[in-house]
Design a protein around this nucleic acid. Structure first.
Lengths: 212, 212
DNA sequence: AGTATGCGGAGGATTACATTCCGGTTCTAG
DNA sequence: CTAGAACCGGAATGTAATCCTCCGCATACT
């Protein structure tokens, strides 16, 4: 039924819902989608009761987080596509700029649980596919421009990116944050079209990522 | 104490011990060191009882796995150092060849639990430091040869490597395996000394990795 | 001011794990 | 070949962690 939570909800409830979503996003990104519900509630500054009232179970929450994030990434990607004329630069910007957003996209790509939900929800799936399309376009374009090495596919990039951003332990969050940015930088250089080493196997495409 | 398990153990016990260690290494690498003991036992083809008889508790197992792996990596690294005259090539070989071994070195770098054990066990720690020394030498050498970009440190490489190798979900283990190899390849190209993008912040050194 | 809507968080039920224990089995020394 | 020490497997127990419901109280809207 999906009755417009925007209009139906009381103001404070609305606010709480948003806080929960935001908190969940952050925590999921760092610790995966299996963290105790209570932790999420605490981070959102609400009681577990509230959390459960708004999202009947964990899966619903995961779904909501995924939706929210995918939408955001998609918007970003489209904005970048509109602004940037070079596909390569668009790609680079997307990778660099969306670090925060991707933090949870990646989550959604690496967790088994999340994956199951993805598969089962047509709407989430549609969004995901749309994002992959945009990415594909960037990749193709960048190759045509001669700026991206020919032997990689969108799948390679997605995997690389998702893998890299798994939060890493470090002395401090700052170091971790810096490390992540540096890794992305190195990766981008590795993606550049210059005589480098040969990669084994075939390029991994966005289709290779599809579940089942 | 530490009575030489090699000589004291009955033949079958010895075999089981090795199987457990091997299984634990594989599973730890994929799922981290907090997996249920029973899963490890099953993978090793033994009962939980056997597992506990050989390793009194989880920490002991983690310690043993770490030791075993670190030793192996160190041996590899030294062998490579002896064979290879170019530091850059040594570095590349180390990264490429040790994928299997690193699978659990990385583990040992990313898990909080494992980290605690590391810190508490002087012997494991010594091994780790020794590995970092070798890595440092390779890095310095490769820079001197003009083959490695100047703005990275051994810490960057360790982090990058450790992060990349966290097993990723994929349609099949084969794809995951391939993806990992490709990621390493791209990363190596990104590390090459060529005019690339500037990395933010300062190089992360091996010292930056040290706990506390 | 009245009432529908929402809130927090204690607590019961359940599940997942770690670890122990012991009857039965397999080595190996003699 | 045989005795008995050394080992095994895995059922059973105890415990800790989480999920999720429920209900008296608070807050927002009209």
């Amino acid at each position: 039924m999906t009755a417009d939570p925007d209009t139906t909800l009381r103001a404070d409830a609305r606010r709480n819902r948003d806080q929960i979503l935001a908190a969940a996003k952050g925590i999921f990104a760092v610790s995966g989608p299996e963290v105790p519900m209570e932790e999420i509630a605490r981070a959102a500054g609400v009681g577990v009761g509230t959390l459960y009232r708004r999202f009947p179970d964990r899966d619903a929450l995961i779904r909501a987080v995924a939706m929210d994030n995918f939408e955001r990434v998609l918007v970003d990607a489209k904005a970048i596509a509109a602004e940037e004329t070079s596909s390569w630069r668009a790609l680079v910007r997307l990778l660099r700029q969306s670090v925060a957003l991707q933090l949870s996209v990646q989550l959604t790509m690496m967790s088994h649980r999340a994956l199951v939900i993805l598969k089962s929800d047509p709407e989430v799936r549609r969004l995901r596919d749309e994002i992959l399309e945009v990415l594909d376009r960037f990749v193709d374009g960048a190759k045509a421009e001669g700026r991206l090495r020919e032997d990689v596919g969108a799948g390679d990039i997605a995997i690389l990116f998702a893998t890299l951003l798994r939060q890493m332990r470090a002395k401090s969050p700052d170091v971790a944050e810096l490390a992540a940015r540096r890794c992305v930088g190195i990766m981008i250089d590795g993606l550049g079209a210059r005589p480098g080493s040969e990669l084994p196997g075939r390029p991994i495409t966005s289709r290779d990522l599809d579940p089942d």
